[in-house]
Computed example of a mutant assay.
Amino acid sequence: MPFTLDRFDLSAFVAATLAEDLGDGGDITSAAVIPADAVFAGAMDSRDAITVAGLGIAEAFFRALDPEVAIECLVEDGDQVAPGTDLLRLKGRARALLTAERSALNTVQHLSGIATLTRRYVDAIADTGAILLDTRKTIPGLRVLEKYATRMGGAQNHRMGLWDAAMIKDNHVGVAGSIGEAVRRAVAAGIARIIVEVDRIDQIAPALDAGATHLLLDNMAPAQLSEAVALVGGRVPTEASGGVRLDTIRAIAETGVTYISVGRLTQSAPAADIGLDFAAA
């Protein structure tokens, strides 16, 4: 089945990406070097241990330029694979496949890199009960894809945008006058999900009393997080955020927080080492 995601236009993404690469002159290398009737077969493979994401998008790039290409996906998005694993095999018109190669690889490398890093964080908090969340710290235009990749790595999505929940942060509080007033205004606006960022214990009660439905505990050390979780007493979900790293996330999870959000998942994930090797058919 074709790859689909809510709020993502695959055809438009593929067309825009290819147009960026082809420019006004097209793939002058393939046109000059490869005979028009040449056929190539090859495989996309991972050189490292990775968690896979984006194969359906890669397939769309190849099919956009060669609708008759034969593609066999050998693994699925979300699978964890060993170095040297073939991800997909394909056979089709050589010019088309070589033209689509970079766009397909860039996408799978980037998304698999995010999924792979995410899986490392998920594994680090295994059996603690804490749930890993991503953030809105994404590359403009790629949010839906990057958040898809974090799901493939085992995380859950935080807000997709500014529209699906209120998140009251320090600047909102500064303009509104107080945490309580900011939350009351969100409640009065009829917003169902009201996430409130607090960085001090004494901000918790005013936020809850005014109607917060979720508390983001910002840049708190584990001891302070434990105190905050105890004070909240399960009345609303709690989320630890700010400066979370692989070497600190386990201690944070063991404080009893409901969620841990990590911007590094999409901000700092290195691209996965994935190649596409062709051989004459």
Rank of each mutant, 00 (worst) to 15 (best):
P2S: 00
F3P: 01
T4D: 04
D6L: 13
R7D: 13
S11V: 07
A16E: 14
T17E: 07
E20Q: 15
E20D: 15
G23T: 09
T29Y: 11
A32F: 06
P35F: 05
P35C: 04
D37M: 04
A41E: 11
M44Y: 04
A49Q: 08
I50E: 11
A53G: 08
L55P: 13
G56V: 12
I57L: 09
F61C: 03
D66F: 03
C73A: 13
E76T: 05
V81Q: 08
G84Y: 06
D86Y: 10
L87G: 06
G92Y: 05
A94T: 15
L98E: 11
L98N: 14
A100Q: 04
E101R: 03
A104F: 02
L105V: 15
H110K: 12
L117S: 03
Y121C: 07
D123V: 08
A124C: 11
A124E: 14
D127C: 14
D127E: 15
A130L: 07
R136H: 12
R136T: 13
R136E: 14
T138C: 13
P140A: 13
L142K: 01
R143H: 12
V144S: 00
Y148D: 08
Y148R: 02
R151I: 09
R151P: 07
G153P: 06
G153V: 09
A155T: 10
N157W: 14
N157A: 10
H158W: 08
R159K: 13
M160R: 08
G161I: 10
L162S: 09
L162I: 12
W163D: 14
A165L: 04
A166V: 14
K169A: 02
K169I: 01
G177T: 12
G177S: 11
G177K: 09
G180L: 00
E181D: 09
A182I: 11
A188P: 09
A189N: 12
G190E: 04
G190H: 10
I191G: 03
I191W: 07
R193T: 14
I195S: 01
V196M: 14
E197I: 07
E197P: 11
V198G: 02
V198A: 03
I204D: 02
P206A: 01
D209C: 01
G211Q: 07
N219R: 12
A221M: 09
A223H: 04
Q224C: 08
E227M: 10
E227V: 05
L231K: 03
V232N: 00
G233E: 03
T238E: 01
G243H: 13
G243Y: 13
D247H: 15
D247R: 10
I252L: 15
E254A: 13
T255W: 05
T258R: 00
Y259L: 10
Y259F: 15
S261E: 05
P270A: 13
G275E: 11
A280N: 05
